[in-house]
Design a protein around this nucleic acid. Structure first.
Lengths: 339, 339
DNA sequence: TTGAAAGCGTTACCAC
DNA sequence: GTGGTAACGCTTTCAA
């Protein structure tokens, strides 16, 4: 037997479909008695409304599209967690699109999402090019960006003040007496997680009267463990005088810890390391990592809330800067002489 | 201006909507000339088909629903990655539902997914109770389970042979000369990741002629880092003679490493540890973790493929056992005397 | 090869 | 309070 439709319910309860519809939507215009009857009938028949039919007429899907380059990363997964939570608690579903896997291009995903009539778009950890924003403009749905860089700066963004956060991390090191500080970075060409963090590093050095030396920032393209290992080895070889390292991600920092250990260095006695992100990983390293934490879950939630507002308002919302903070653990040592 | 519909395209191209529809769906019954004309018109107008209207008439949404208790966990995130990849490469979208967050119950999510007319359901890392399967049966959509336990064993499952995998892990330790082996487990009441792994541990011991001692398996409810720390401390205090530990997850193992270190023990010299899962974390610990790896991405992909088959076939598919394997790294030491 | 029209399950407007 | 019905954007017969 087919699943019952609103028509079946109406027939069974001897009312019109209009009445059933009203009751379903908490509208007005029916007696308490009919309401009860209809509700009972629905119950008995196991009727469930069809959101697709609803969406067709309402011109909305109550669905948000999320685009991210990798979903199994620590960072992405936490952001997604925040997105999902906020979305579902407000009656919106979330379709995830992994733009790096499955060989599909971002534009293909946008096309797909367009066909599915999503009500809004979340761009996460991923460049939003002008080509993308042009396409999205044609789709006529609001977008918001989370921890991502957009060529079109009219697009609202939820993120941490990366330059400031990096500055704070390095200053944290300086305040503890370090003056020979190296940095393990992602690509300087990365406008989100690359250049701003390097700028913060530079500025902190400058404000402390420490000369900036380009050869003290090592980088690979990624922000992964292996990248951290390589950069750390490279850095320590060239600059054995370094007493502290600022890593642009927790994974990078974890890689640096492993490499330092292999080089016979003890953290934090021989070398202090501060990480970035504040993912779960940061508490699991040995020693546990002191790191500047971004609240990814909060970022996801904030982005969804803003996006929903702009869907309702019919115009793009504002972005938001999420507060970062340093989590002190065991990977940084103060080397100030107390006499 | 509103987004163009198929009707607008038809009018513009001076053909009927039926013709446009045929062309869009690669059907037959139109001249090459009309096809070209229509395609050009579509291009010019920037027409995009409406999947919602399509879904209404085709009675399918090309959307799969995924239910998981936590999406930011290492394991869940990797499974999700596999699911997303396989789904999108076959034209299906994925709606994620985090059953532990946002205060929504699993049944509420099922209801939601039902209304959204998903074509299939993926139950991940989560108990599937009889109440759930009853509800799903009424929904009349196929389900498959990934790394999850189902009360109703007629539901197809994709998973590793946990008992066997645990057995292999412990035997790995035994083969390297260990006889005093402790276990850090999740709850023995957990029918998926709890009891089967304990059984494997017991069996391996038994086959090696080593007596089983209940007090050598410590557990907390979760499989997290902190649980590992606590269980490890507890175990080592009661059984200082232990030379090796089998942990039922990588996080548990990471916690054990940290605690051991704090207790002044060196891994693997004083204590060997083998983990379970093979998540990214396992390569980042210090020392890098030897662990029995489940291929989560493959699990996700396999599950989607099976599910899609059963959607097409209109009946539930078979489950699948995914092969596990041990990744040898640096946390286990052989203590066999070679004279 | 093409078009007209019914129908998918809803909602919302207009009568009564 | 309630019912009839057009409309949402599309696919798919049935005729021409």
């Amino acid at each position: 037997m087919q699943k019952p439709t609103i028509k079946d319910v109406a027939k069974e309860a001897n009312v019109s479909i209009a009445t059933v519809s009203r009751i379903l939507n908490n509208g007005v215009g029916y007696s308490a008695k009919t309401k009860e009857l209809v509700l009972r009938t629905i119950q008995e028949m196991g009727y469930s409304p069809n959101a697709i039919a609803r969406g067709l007429i309402n011109k909305q899907s109550n669905t948000l599209g999320v685009l991210m380059p990798e979903i199994s990363g620590l960072v992405s997964a936490e952001i997604l967690q925040g997105i999902e939570k906020a979305a579902h608690s407000q009656g919106q579903s979330v379709i995830v699109c992994n733009t790096a896997a499955s060989g599909k291009q971002t534009i293909d995903y946008l096309k797909l999402l367009q066909e599915k009539q999503v009500d809004g778009l979340l761009f996460t950890s991923q460049y939003l090019t002008n080509e993308h924003s042009t396409y999205i403009a044609k789709m006529n749905v609001p977008v918001i960006t989370i921890s991502a860089y957009s060529e079109d700066d009219s697009i609202p963004a939820v993120r941490v003040d990366d330059e400031r956060a990096a500055y704070d991390a390095v200053r944290y090191l300086i305040e503890r007496g370090h003056r020979h500080i190296g940095m393990i970075s992602g690509s300087p060409g990365d406008r989100l997680a690359g250049s701003p963090r390097i700028s913060g590093y530079k500025q902190a050095l400058k404000d402390a009267g420490i000369a900036y030396d380009e050869s003290k920032v090592a980088w690979r393209y990624g922000f992964y463990f292996e990248d951290g290992q390589e950069s750390c080895a490279h850095l320590l070889k060239q600059h054995p005088e370094l007493t502290a390292l600022f890593a642009a991600s927790d994974e990078l920092a974890a890689g640096a810890i492993t490499t330092s250990y292999q080089l016979g260095l003890s953290i934090p006695d021989d070398l202090s390391i501060i990480g970035y992100d504040g993912t779960k990983l940061s508490k699991m390293t040995l020693p546990a990592l002191t790191t500047v934490s971004q609240n990814f879950v909060e970022m996801g939630e904030t982005a969804v809330n803003r996006l929903l507002n702009s869907i309702r308002a019919g115009k793009n919302s504002d972005g938001a800067i999420i507060q970062h903070h340093i989590i002190e653990r065991a990977s940084v040592k103060s080397i100030i002489h107390t006499s």
